[in-house]
Nucleic acid binder design. Structure first.
Lengths: 244, 244
DNA sequence: ATAATTAAACGTCATTTAAACACTAAGTAT
DNA sequence: ATACTTAGTGTTTAAATGACGTTTAATTAT
């Protein structure tokens, strides 16, 4: 199939990756570097989201999925289209001018922004020299309007993880209660009482204790659990609780 | 300023209007009618959202705001960009073919969809022959992918009104508790116990009783209240309540 | 073997919140 | 004065939440 780009529309991918070892919520960013051919002066040196123009035959979802897969090799990950960014000047900041000149794309581009939830360990970055994980709390200098995009994605994620079981997208299939709690802490930046959290989670019918414990830990090994999406979807009736 | 349209990108506006008299949540739709010039056969006869291509100098928000204002005369209304729709075949359904031929726009168009919250009474449709309100529960035949867009907007609204005080965008400045309850009923399609609802609302510090009662009603006049956005924003701390 | 260490796991009480439920009060229209 | 209509009120029970300290099960060091 012939690949025809639409220069007016792109997708950008905010890739959240959780590192269960360091308990760090990370973002996958691409290094952007440009120096002057004549003077060797560094013109651009920062990071951007991964993204690309859409192809004419693709849906937006397909486009985003493609871009993610090209970078990470992953498909079938959780994704959410959370906002479109279309300020006519969004690519026209002074800091981005050398880059834009170099790339020679000067059309207005509206970008449809997605975020993805993955496990850092699932991504092999060895073949991707320019890609690097950054903790959400220690972001580097960012190009274009990508800082804004990231912050909006993060806000959306914070809200979403309170009401939908997307947290389990960031965890291995088998996890401990404390690992879930640590993840919530990483995302929300709040302290959570372990006993109360534990009680709450264990009582959910879709949090299923396994006949397994952690292995290879140098302490009391914790009980492992799994999340049953099936049960969740059957049991969980939306409660229209007005909470303004 | 010269107005240059971008044919690849449009905005569509899902306009929710609440009619406090009939207690009906409505949608503002545009009649789309086309008959064959030769045979007089009716080729297209349905309704669509109001929408238009974006201009090159506009932000997406400005574009949506412009489109809404052209139709309703309203500015400063609540709006939310809730999703982009970009299926390459979204305008290529058989039912839309005569219309597309007639309009002669055949480029792929990604639309950024917004919803707006207004009071039906604030909109003067006299000069807009083609525009009409429909109760959300009695939608007419819809063109393009607009049914899908509407349903997604409605779902978003249902969720949003549970956690943010957007309900008051649909009510007059002075309202009764029962009017708020009726509105929730109209949006959510659920029964709500009046006593519990009343107690809950009256205890909110940002729901302020006025020294006024309803006038001109042929029954016991109800106490009027107002919503203080100021107080809401100061008082309302986000409670990170995990509710999966 | 024993002790020290570390994180997991458990339980209670006080408070808050939600759900269920039926009657009286206050005004208007006749 | 009476009928009518909607506004407005209170209690009880169950469930969920938040605050808080101690015990248990494993590994590591001696």
């Amino acid at each position: 199939m012939e690949l025809i780009k639409n220069l007016n529309i792109s997708v950008d991918c905010v890739v959240f990756g959780y590192d269960i070892i360091s308990k760090s919520l990370n973002l996958l960013l691409i290094h952007r570097y440009l120096e002057s051919k004549s003077t060797k002066e560094v013109l651009v040196n920062d990071y951007v989201l991964t993204g690309y123009h859409i192809y004419e035959h693709e849906t937006l979802d397909q486009s985003a999925t493609r871009v993610l897969e090209e970078l990470t090799g992953l498909s079938n990950t959780y994704k959410k289209q959370f906002k479109a960014f279309g300020d006519p000047n969004r690519l026209k900041d002074e800091k981005d001018a050398p880059w834009i000149d170099n790339e020679a794309f000067n059309q207005r581009t509206v970008t449809i922004a997605y975020y993805f939830l993955v496990k850092t360990e699932d991504v092999d970055l060895n073949s991707k020299q320019k890609a690097k994980w950054f903790p959400v709390s220690e972001l580097p200098k960012l190009g274009f309007d990508h800082k804004k995009i990231i912050l909006e994605a993060y806000e959306d994620l914070k809200l979403k993880c309170l009401t939908e079981p997307i947290i389990f997208e960031l965890l291995p299939d088998k996890f401990t209660i404390n690992e879930v709690q640590d993840l919530y802490k990483s995302i929300l930046n709040v302290e959570i009482d372990n006993r109360n959290f534990r009680r709450k989670l264990i009582h959910k019918k879709y949090i299923i204790p396994l006949d397994e414990k952690q292995v290879g830990v140098s302490k009391k090994p914790a009980q492992l659990y799994m999340f049953s999406k099936d049960i969740y979807e059957k049991m969980h009736q939306k409660n229209y609780l007005i909470n303004i």
